[in-house]
Every structure is written in C-alpha cells, then in structure tokens.
Design a protein around this nucleic acid. Sequence first.
DNA 1: TTATTAAGGATATAAAATATCCCTATTCCA
DNA 2: TGGAATAGGGATATTTTATATCCTTAATAA
Lengths: 162, 162
Amino acid sequence: MILKSQVEWALHCCAILAGLPEGRYLSTKALAEFHGLPKEYLSKALQSLSQAGLVHTTLGPSGGYRLARTPAELTFLDIVEAVEGKARTFVCNNIRENNPCRPQGYCESSPCAVSRFMWEADEAWRAKLRSVRLSDLTEALAQEIPAELWKSSFEWVLERAG
Amino acid sequence: MILKSQVEWALHCCAILAGLPEGRYLSTKALAEFHGLPKEYLSKALQSLSQAGLVHTTLGPSGGYRLARTPAELTFLDIVEAVEGKARTFVCNNIRENNPCRPQGYCESSPCAVSRFMWEADEAWRAKLRSVRLSDLTEALAQEIPAELWKSSFEWVLERAG
DNA sequence: TTATTAAGGATATAAAATATCCCTATTCCA
DNA sequence: TGGAATAGGGATATTTTATATCCTTAATAA
Ligand code: SF4
Ligand code: SF4
C-alpha cells in the first residue's frame, strides 16, 4: 500500500503556489519543469486539485493555477484526498458472510470489529494530515532550505508566473 | 491506496486461531473454507504470518497453524505489517533535486518537510494499529456476534483442528 | 507406506498506477 | 482579428502491483 507519487507532486506544487503573489498564476509547464516531472501526467494531479476546489485556474497565455484559499486554510488532508481520493484504505469484503455456520438469510447489520478497528487507524492517519496546514509546510521549508536557493527558486517562479 | 485484501484475511484468521485450544493447529484448508477464500492464495498470507514469527506451524495430517503468542501479545500492527510490509506508505522520490535553481553538486542532507509530515501521519496510523491487541478484537467479536453463531463456528473449527 | 500438510518457486490473470497523445474551449496579446 | 498558449478531458498505451493458480519438495501423523 503506497500513496501515488502524484500526492508528493501535489504537495510540492501547492508549496510553490503558496509563495505566489496575490492574483498571479503558475502554469503546469512551469510546475513540471521546476520539479522535473512529466507535464501531461502532472496535469492530471493539478486537475484533481482543481476539481476539489483547492485551486483556481485561468486559461490562455499567462494562465495557470493559484491557491483558492490561504495556505493557513489548506490542510495536508485536503491535498492528499484531492489526489488520492477520500475512500478508506481498508475495504471490507464482508467475508464473514461466507461462514458455513451462518444461518440462512442471516444479515449482518453493521461492519464487524475488524473493519471498525482498521477504520479507526485510518481516521488517526487522516486526523494527523488534517492537523498540518500548508502554511506549516512553507514555514518548515523556509527554515530548512538554504536562503539563497529559496530566493532564486522564488525568482525563477516569478519570471514564469502569469 | 488500498490495503491488500490479504490484510483482512490475516486478521480474520488470527481471530479464529485465537480461539483455538492450547497445542492444536488449524490448516489452511479449514481457514479457507471457513472464510470462503481461495486456499492457495490465502496460504501466501499465512506464510507471511509464519515468516514474521506470529504463528507456529506443523506439517503432515493434523498440521496447520496456531498463534505463536497469546492474543494479548499480538497487535493489529504485527499482523498488518506481516502481510503488507513495514515500508512507509509515503515514498520520497526526491524531486527537489530537479530544482533548476539548485547549485551543482548540492546535496540535500535529509528528507524535506513534506516527507516528514507525511511520515508523521504514517506513524499515527501505525501507533493506532499498535494499540489494538488481537484480544481486543476477539472480545469485540464475542460481543457483537450472536451467541449461537459464535458457538457453532467454534465447534466447526474444533472439528477440523488437528 | 500413504495421505496430508506447509513452504515456496513459477507462472498466469486482473487491476491500478504511470504516462502519453490528441482534441476542445478559453484567453491573452500582437 | 488571428495566432499562440493555456486548462480540461477523453482515449489509449505501458508498467507495476495485486490476485490467483499450479506444481514440487520435505515433513509428519496414522
Ligand atoms: S472486516 Fe468485518 S465486516 Fe469486513 S468482511 Fe471482515 S468480517 Fe465482514
Ligand atoms: S518529499 Fe521532500 S525529500 Fe521527498 S522528494 Fe519531495 S522534497 Fe524531496
């Protein structure tokens, strides 16, 4: 069970978009080039963000993406779920209904304890992701990335932002 | 990102094995029949449990599996990791090294903030799984499964246990 | 001796992730 | 006003993973 790489891409792209000045947009092309990613496929991840309402888009030259909310109002969970989906990571195949001792016509009313415990763990994962804001990420990155690289990256992006 | 169905199978099988009297073994065949699962493939999941040291096995007629520890000493995490592996669910592809502004020869020392936050969430998931013991599961199942079905299932298993 | 079992290697099939291609409508700009 | 650049989305191809089956071997109980 491994998250799609699009999750990482989306998080990095949002981190970049978080540094974009008000009202400006950054294209798929620029984001793909900056991260060294396949443009067409990254585009699918960005479309997921768009469909989830996390980013705004415009068309035409100088078009692209910008965040739909402030970085403090965007959580990791928003981004992860936009790309990976909201489905729980444990799916119940209801194998208990194959129990040969099960009475005819007997119908289980609710998910069994196995799924409940697994879903609690799933929820713990989501709760943690929900507690991390995009602004937390950008603050942490600003701390750990060398000031010069941080600055030149910002300039690189601004040159290409529409 | 969805857990393999073998995870559910392994949890249900362990729940059954937890009810087995001391010193007795239950075969793949019986476990597969009880849960309505493909015997050969379920066997792979049970082999994973065996390799992880969670169950003991014996060969020959009346051979099969029994728990290697008491249900109170076995956690959900033990079982999930035995089947699904211990690898983290977020893998870092180090795309930051594609940053065009990155100085030549510059080498990132440690994983960036993105992976750290994602790994914290992963750890929250594991911590929750670690906190649930197999005995918690059997207690919950004993509560929610009708007494009669619980009893007949136990008898069904005992008839086939070596 | 014979039947039965776990273990594990080899292989086949189905599903999901990854990736590319192409067409459309929109928008900017020369 | 026309051409270039953009997001969106459908179709398709490739690669990887999950699912499933088959077969051989060694151990064991009866
Ligand atoms: S997890 Fe529970 S509800 Fe889901 S299949 Fe297993 S027994 Fe049924
Ligand atoms: S998550 Fe961090 S360490 Fe991993 S690739 Fe992205 S930037 Fe690099």
